[in-house]
Structures are given as C-alpha cells and as structure tokens.
Design a protein around this nucleic acid. Structure first.
Lengths: 237, 237
DNA sequence: GGCTTTTAGTGATCGTGGTCACGGGTCGCC
DNA sequence: GGCGACCCGTGACCACGATCACTAAAAGCC
C-alpha cells in the first residue's frame, strides 16, 4: 500500500529504533498498547503545519517519518529556526504539559507521517503511567538545556562565521549514518540563515569562504569537512 | 544579633511572603518542618559565588535576602547575564534535578543570605512529598519558557536599542513596589550591557539617546518612564 | 521541452555598533 | 585628606554584515 507523496505508511512508529532520548521508546507492553489506542496517525505533505505559534495546545505529535522545522517569528516577519526535528521526536510537549500556547510553529520540510495524541488523553495516560511521566520530565529538562545552549550561541558568539562553524560541527556530530566528516545538506541557504540569525547572502559568502579556506568541500548535496580542528578552533567556546 | 555586613539574619526564610512562583512557599506544615531539618543557612558578602558554571551540582540555594546575578561566559571572556534573582528564587534547580553541571554562575550582587539544600536530601524529600515535586516540575517548565523568551529576544530583535527598551519595560512591569513607571536602577552599565549582549559604551549612549528623546528621565538612581507607548512600539514583537 | 518558481552566487553601498582612547566623577579605604 | 578602584560619558575611527540589485543555475510543473 502506497500513501500519497510516495511515502510508506508505517504501521506503528511508536516502536521505533532505540534512541536514548526517545520518550516513547522501550516502554512496557501495557503502555505501548494504551498509546496505540489513544494515538491517531496522519500523513503530511511538505510545508504542512502541525501547529502554529500562539495556538492553544491541542496535544503532542510524535514524528514518525520526515523532518519538521520548529520556528518562531517576530511581527516584522523575521524568523528564527530553533530546531530541525527528526523521526522519533515529540513535538509540542512543553505547551501541552503546561497548557500554554505553542511557543513555536512546526512545519514539515519533507513529506512525512506523525502520530497525534490529544492533550486530555495524554495527561490521563501520564497519570496512569508514572514511568512515562518521568521520561517527560527528563525531556523537559533536555529541552531547557537545548534552549540554554541556543542562548549561549546567540548571546556569546558574535560573528556569523562562528555560529556557522558551530552549526556545521553540530551536524557532523549528529550524523546518523556513518562518517562524521560528511554531512548531507538538506536545508536551503535561507533556512540556514534563519538558524544562525543572519541573511541568506551571508550564508552564501560563508560557504564560499569556508571552501576557499579548505575547511570544507562540497560534492553535490554532500558536505565534506576537511579541517575539523580549524572549525573547532573558530567555535572554541 | 547582627550578622556581618549589617544584615539581619532571618530565622526562617522558607516562610516567605507569598509569591506565586515561589517553589517552597505555602507548603503543608509537615513539609516545611522537614525542609527546616535538611536546610542549612549561610550569609554571603557581595561578590560571593554560590556556584560556578561547570561545577557538579551540590544542591539548590533558596535565596532569602539580597540579589544574585546568573551568568555564563565564553572562553574569550565575554559574559552574558541571563537573570537577576530575587529573594524567594530557587537557584541551581535544573542542574540539581538532572544531575548535570551547573549551567550558570550565581554571584551575589548584594550582601545576602541563602538556604542550601543538598542534592541527596532534596531528592529524598521530593520522593516523599509529591506535591512539592509537582511544583518543581512547574518551575522547570517556567525556566524553559524564560529561556525561550531570551532566545526570541536575542535572535529576533536586531538592534541594541530594541533590546534595551525591552529590558526597561520588563523592569517596569516587575517593579515590586508601587508605581510601574519608576524603576530603581541597581545595575551598572556594564552589567546592563551583559544582559542585552552589547557593550558598556553602547548602553551609555542608549541612556543619553532615550533621555534626549524624552522616553525616560533619570533622577538619582531612579528611572522614570516618560513615554511608555513609544518604548512598547520600539519592542513591538 | 520550455515554462515559471525557487535557490544560489556576487558586486556595490551604507549604517550601525564595536573598539580604542581619554577625562571626569564618585565611592571607599588607609 | 588623599589615593586608588571603579563607574560613567563621549569623541574618532573602522570593520563587518545588512541591504539592494541583478544574473545564473536548478528544480518543479503543464
């Protein structure tokens, strides 16, 4: 069976490959069973919005396939991307737990699939399954540390080149498959600019400069990191 | 009895004036009793460090008197102040709960007093008193939202004047005593600069400019906000 | 295959805010 | 009182990156 957008529907993406930070993985069978009852699965095209900054929290989304960008923007239209979420991530958890409006907008940047768990059902489920509630608390704590890192990056590193280098190193470390020195580029320069708080043109120039300085090399959509120590020295915080 | 630095020692600053966000206020008598057993009180001079960024978490500090600045700094010596903590605030809670190194440095900017609760004792106490654990979770969530606001400020508002206006408005809203249009200035220009990610000189110039534009007026150490709408229009995010 | 739309690269210009330098003011301390 | 440490104000200079403008390339789309 083929879903729209050439995507295979996954029967149950709650039972995902083990990744330590996955909130809903490696749970007791009873909990998984209950989760399957209260979740609903949907397929999303590229550019679909899972939720929008400022909306009342309806519940959480567990990303099964495809990636989503989390962003927030100002009245003047300037946008910052705070995170690129990958399959396994739980989106909207802070807003849902504390019952405040979603603080970010979640938009699919690839076609994908996600499970939705409504707020009421989730809270009820958490009360019954304390061990999952603990996982949620840990996730909240991790979110805080991630946000904190972002503050350090934005507040302490002055130059775009520094932030750019930090972003590249972050990508090379979190590379899911194989060689940590090659990174598949999937974002536009515009999106990269929104991640490091600069402009598209500056990102273009940074790529040129880094290539010229032999720090990186570009083959197709794959970026090879040629001089990791130099990059690390630029970051050096 | 007089403590050093002309400070009265407070017998029990856990029973503080009610402020909604105070984690340890308005607790059942049994919990307060237990807290008093596991806490220890100390007096700190100005510039004393409660804990330092990167240290293993020893426990939490409940600030009773005096204020502390929370800051983080980069290898090159650049520093950002993320928060000015007031009496009643609990410091070091994220690190202590998640057992990661303190992410900030807490330094007294006035002589003061704080209760210390060691990590083990606190965790044991939380297990016995679920209602306090819930308060802690709420506090963690608040911390996240505060951090998130900081990211928006740093990432979205380009100009120092915008961030400066936002800071002033924040102060005027959180003014503890009376008139929200007058603010007691207690930080040096240097510290203000570290809060909005700019330099001391720029802060000086911003004060001059805002005074010239009749936005604010300075009498001694008190700042009067003369044109709040104009300030809000500058922020406008 | 040719069309529009999106993404990338690059030059020219210009403003903002960082940096450096210096003078004056205030507080605390021997 | 006088000295030193720490703040605060302001001018001059300059580099960096935002903005604008335009072309080129690549990617969807009938």
């Amino acid at each position: 069976m083929r879903a729209p957008y050439g995507l295979n529907i996954l029967d149950n993406c709650l039972t995902c490959p083990v990744r330590e930070e996955h909130v809903f993985c490696n749970l007791p069978a009873a909990a998984v069973q209950k989760l399957n009852e209260i979740k609903s699965t949907a397929v999303y095209p590229k550019s679909a919005m899972l939720f929008i900054e400022g909306q009342q929290p309806r519940g959480v989304f567990v990303l099964c396939a495809g990636r989503a960008k989390l962003s927030t923007s100002s009245a003047e239209g300037k946008t910052i991307i705070t995170k690129i979420s990958e399959p396994g991530d739980v989106l909207g958890i802070n807003a849902t737990i504390s019952n405040r409006p979603y603080e970010v907008t979640a938009e699919m940047i690839e076609p994908g699939q996600a499970n939705f768990i409504a707020r009421d059902a989730l809270l009820h489920f958490l009360r019954e399954h304390g061990e999952v509630a603990v996982r949620i608390a840990e996730q909240l704590s991790r979110n805080y540390y991630t946000a904190y890192e972002e503050i350090r990056t934005l507040g302490l590193s002055a130059s775009p080149s520094e932030k750019f280098a930090k972003l590249l190193l972050g990508w090379s470390n979190s590379t899911s498959n194989g060689d940590p020195l090659q990174v598949k580029l999937t974002l536009t320069h515009e999106e990269i600019a929104e991640m490091i708080g600069t402009t598209r043109e500056t990102v273009s120039r940074l790529f040129s400069e880094f290539k010229k300085r032999q720090l990186v090399q570009l083959k197709g959509a794959t970026l090879f990191i040629r001089n990791k120590p130099a990059l690390q020295k630029m970051v050096n915080s």
